[in-house]
Write a protein that binds this DNA or RNA. Structure first.
Lengths: 343, 343
DNA sequence: CTGTTAGCGCATTCAC
DNA sequence: GTGAATGCGCTAACAG
């Protein structure tokens, strides 16, 4: 058994008795040599087992890598099981795949984008990364940057009108001014704990989608003349069943029991539904619940969830298209209300 | 506003009045120079905005990239929303992140691994890629290869004993020899259609986890003396709700109606549950259903699903550990039966 | 259409 | 500790 020969552009050129420029052109610039010559060379290369110019060297030379880093809000492991994030990734990947750009998953808790900045063409940033230092770095980098569900000055971005959507769904959920409303919020404050929020900090967080949604809820509450008790706002650190269930139990066992639950994600709302069902309460007679996102599981729950459907996959598509086209537009994506049976 | 200076090792060395070897050593080989000198240099670099040697050039030089390609069974967009695959990715990413290795998502329908082979350290392959040409290429590559849920000769791999697991859950689901069993199979044949399977091809597919599970079911069926009708096997091309529902409807409307459904994934089983509930049948009195995988949603269904819990995330951990350690072991991961209420 | 050459940015070796 | 030299594998410009 002989060791497999590892060819390089230079060695294969010598083997074929042509100049290395010719081999390079055969692979990269068809117009630079006759069709016949090119076919011959490519055929010989294939026969010898040379699959083309080394991609790493090519990238170093050209400064183009065909890799997009997808910056997730949190560590990869926390995000990948979130159906909303998954849909977004799906949308991104489908467009990137078509354009032969590879997808690198990048954690939002990384120290610095420097660890990858030298070998990616740019960043697609889904939500505000937990490590806010990354945001500053993204502002400064010369690489392409596209953001989704948040903004960086003068960079391309996609998103929905969170405030308006939250407003609309709240108007649907709240029926009278005597309703007792509780809000199960997502990443309202920078805390890893599930807890009530008594004081909202006046941070940059104002730009976050959670705060926009909160403003939307508040607008509806004010407009309907409901008396919203400020101790009726919960913070849930991650959109997962575990944390959501804790908050839901706390809210549902508070007294008097709220009869309207505004949830900032479907995952949260589904946890609430489960708890409400377990308590033997009737939805929507005893208590009304609305979600946000429009994940698939929400159409299969009992009862099906009334929620904002926000086309996460399309959002991903658009983000990737902006990335590919190097445009710097701000795209607002439409949403619709998924009318379930939960309110 | 002045353009930001882009430093290179060489230019920064000149600026600092030291040799470029010294700068390189300051970043990469602390033992090669005094601590004091090193700190000085690093501090100056930080001040000037040089964040260290260019990663792309470093990689080309060293032949090490700190990127692992995760080869998915199908296109990225099809897989990312599958909760089982997501858990696996989660497990992989958590270990890679700790080792500062980046994760590149690679489609199982790509033409060739050549498009990335030159700039990754190797491949973690989750399930058999739809494009089987990739398997041949993976056999030949000099890069690291770890497989999960299938085998490539003499490469590292992780998985569970699918046959035994399927056998055990089938034994649980089938109560008497007069039971009428239907199997909702996953990727049993190479077809994009949801349909009955009348003839099983004798392909390499024998090595696939689906065929191992099928053998496990068959062993239980034979042992219990059940008369299994060969037209009671369905193929579902992807583990998603849509396809699964089609198969479930077909199976449940066949006559006589089966009273035991062996499902090769939880997603399939959940679709079946939904249909059964919609038909007004009682589980497990009228019909018993078992799944496979142990996804979280299966614990929240009505009724909770009886299934094989297979620690997908741990599987991902192990795969990544094999990758990092360059070991070539075959690891078999334990599973357990999640006793729900569906059988 | 072909061959030569100078880098892309770096790591490593070797003599000093 | 230094500085020069070589090469990782390739592309693009240029002269022929």
């Amino acid at each position: 058994m002989t060791a497999k020969k590892i060819w390089t552009l230079k060695s294969i050129a010598k083997e074929l008795g042509v100049s290395n420029a010719t081999v390079s052109n055969a692979f990269n610039r068809p117009d630079q040599l006759s069709k016949k010559r090119r076919e011959e060379i490519l055929a010989s290369c294939r026969k010898l087992g040379y699959s083309g110019p080394n991609k790493a060297a090519q990238s170093l030379r050209k400064g183009q890598f065909n890799i997009a880093a997808l910056v997730l809000p949190d560590s990869v492991e926390y995000m990948i099981t979130d159906p909303v994030a998954s849909s977004f990734v799906k949308g991104v990947s489908s467009v990137l795949e078509k354009n032969k750009v590879n997808l690198l998953l990048f954690s939002g808790v990384s120290d610095s984008i420097d660890s990858v900045a030298d070998f990616v063409d740019g960043f697609i940033c889904y939500g505000s990364p937990r490590n806010s230092a990354l945001i500053e770095q993204l502002k400064l980098t010369d690489k392409k940057v596209v953001t989704a569900d948040f903004d960086i000055d003068r960079k391309a971005s996609v998103g929905i009108d969170n405030q308006q959507a939250a407003y609309e769904i709240a108007k649907l959920a709240i029926k009278t001014k005597d309703d007792d409303v509780a809000i199960l919020g997502l990443r309202i404050i920078d805390s890893q704990l599930t807890s009530r929020v008594y004081d909202l900090p006046e941070l940059d967080l104002h730009a976050s989608i959670s705060h926009q949604r909160l403003q939307g809820y508040r607008r509806a509450i004010a407009e309907l003349g409901v008396n919203f008790r400020e101790d009726r706002l919960w913070n849930i650190p991650e959109s997962n069943h575990h944390y959501a269930l804790i908050a839901a139990k706390e809210a549902l066992s508070s007294s008097p029991r709220p009869n309207v639950l505004l949830c900032m994600s479907d995952t949260i709302a589904l946890a609430a539904l489960k708890e409400i069902n377990a308590m033997g309460l009737k939805i929507p007679q005893d208590i009304r619940v609305v979600g946000f996102d429009g994940i698939e599981e929400a159409t299969r729950s009992t009862p099906p969830l009334t929620t904002i459907h926000q086309h996460s996959e399309v959002k991903g598509n658009k983000a990737a298209e902006l990335f590919i086209s190097r445009a710097t537009d701000t795209i607002t994506i439409p949403y619709y209300i998924e009318s379930g049976k939960s309110c």
